[in-house]
Design a protein around this nucleic acid. Sequence first.
DNA 1: CTGTTAGCGCATTCAA
DNA 2: TTGAATGCGCTAACAG
Lengths: 341, 341
Amino acid sequence: MITIKDVARVAEVSTSTVSRVVRKQGKVGKACRAKVQKVIDELGYRPNINAQALVSKKSNSLGIVIPKVSMPFFGTLACGAEEATKENNYRVLISNADESEQTELDAIDSLIQHRCEAIVFHSVYNNDDTLCELAEKIPGLVFINRFIPKIAHRCVWLDNNLGAQEATRHLISKGHTDIAVITRENINTDAQVRLDGVRTALTNAGIKLIDSMVESASTADMEGGREAVRNLLKKGMKYTAVLAFNDNMAIGVIHELNAQGIRVPEDVSVIGFDDLLIAVACLPELSTMHYPIREMANYAAKLAIELSENSSSSVRTHLFMPHLVERDSVSEAAVIEARAS
Amino acid sequence: MITIKDVARVAEVSTSTVSRVVRKQGKVGKACRAKVQKVIDELGYRPNINAQALVSKKSNSLGIVIPKVSMPFFGTLACGAEEATKENNYRVLISNADESEQTELDAIDSLIQHRCEAIVFHSVYNNDDTLCELAEKIPGLVFINRFIPKIAHRCVWLDNNLGAQEATRHLISKGHTDIAVITRENINTDAQVRLDGVRTALTNAGIKLIDSMVESASTADMEGGREAVRNLLKKGMKYTAVLAFNDNMAIGVIHELNAQGIRVPEDVSVIGFDDLLIAVACLPELSTMHYPIREMANYAAKLAIELSENSSSSVRTHLFMPHLVERDSVSEAAVIEARAS
DNA sequence: CTGTTAGCGCATTCAA
DNA sequence: TTGAATGCGCTAACAG
């Protein structure tokens, strides 16, 4: 691998001069610059980023910690963050950590070893206190999809409550009053907040949510959705609409309903949350709440970089809003007796 | 940021000793090791990877160049590669490059600057010659989803021809003889090879493929699939099955067919290629050829690392096979007149 | 078993 | 405008 010294020697200048032309800063004579550049091109010299990082004490890199890039939601998150780094000329390191508290911490650790100045962290296992401690140690650390009151200005999150309310109101506006809610077990914060939102919207409309209409599945995926529908059937619940915790579950719901000979949306309407690509692959196409994760990640990345450069504890808040995307899985409520018969 | 010197000073040993306990190699007295470890923990010392890479001349990192992580296929690829690095304790750098020949080259360039010893490259824009040149310069460079004869041992690819043949035979086995083929414009190598495979299988079965039954869409996504179906309709083509270039197109086909009142699979069967998550989100669930991209990426990553450490130009070949996944979008052929009427 | 010495490749003073 | 000198944090001989 050819180094700055090689270039300097061949171009018959000092390494300082080569360094200056490489980084395009500092004064260099026109002829000299041309000569050096020529040698750089001929030799195919590429500065060693590790060395640059070491001496300049800046790695110019952004780390992202997410459960798994192969999940479309997180892949999109990663992309959004990456796009934000283009103008800053930052590198992006992605760490997957979907197992435990410890793997998440390890991922952060690895990023620290890289001396990433900015980090966007989507934590699912660690608690607020641990995260707060981390935030104190790392100025450029930002949390995404998480709200921690003590460090609100370091959190980029979504208003899940209002989102759930809007989804619920949409169902209500279509005449639905018998609404089943499918959520996940081990209710995490998001699920809890969304459930609260559903309750609020229902209450405001004078509809009460019966406990047995809320079904928790063990996993938040398609199978979870199917499982929930089966349990609802076992309990003999009647409903004209289903509000699912996320798109994956919603699609599972549609599949299971279909398997039971119940048509969507003619017999039962279904609404999801996230607006993943699969929402549009499903037939009927899924009506859902659009989660602007790409924009949020983009914002979070910029915030992290900004914070790392200038630790002014801004007091801004970073709350995003989901919005309804109407497609084909929700229609006017059918008369419930008709279906139940 | 605390350094190895800080630890050495506090622990009252030399930096070499600290280095030894950090890397868990070399002989260190038990008591001494314990003392140093204690200081490390107390101070929260994390070795600077940039410095390690600089001095040891090994960055222990694997670079991945793909069009875009947010696309599920590539997200899965990235994950597969990442999993392969765990045992080697390598870091992973992901570069998105979906614009042009140049952005791909820039991505590689960035990886070189990082001194990644291993690189898995999914190139879509560059030609074989450019890639060969690159391969000569970078011992640990491996191409995925690409076959370049001159450097076959550096390519991890899929037998698209046989895959297409199998898909075609599946359709034939279900009694289909009027098969429409939906591919993409600017036919890339994969599309061409798959088309060849379809032709071969059809010919072997004594069926001839009419040119007008092959429809190219401008994009290889859902909209492309829909577009192709519309064009087929305009031309008045009759068919009982559609073989699509990939899952996205296949799902577009199903949606468009559905919009035209044609049922899948009762009236027309549809088969895809890739077996993405969306295949299972679709209703009916899509029958498709499973593309073992995760395993391939895993393999490619290991190969890249191996090659980087020991440039023995192995003569092995690295060809993977797709396999059929039967779901619900393919059924026995309907009598074509019945549908056409 | 432990410490000393000498760089890795580069950016950054400071002189010239 | 250019070059010489210094050191970033760490590992790798080499002594002891």
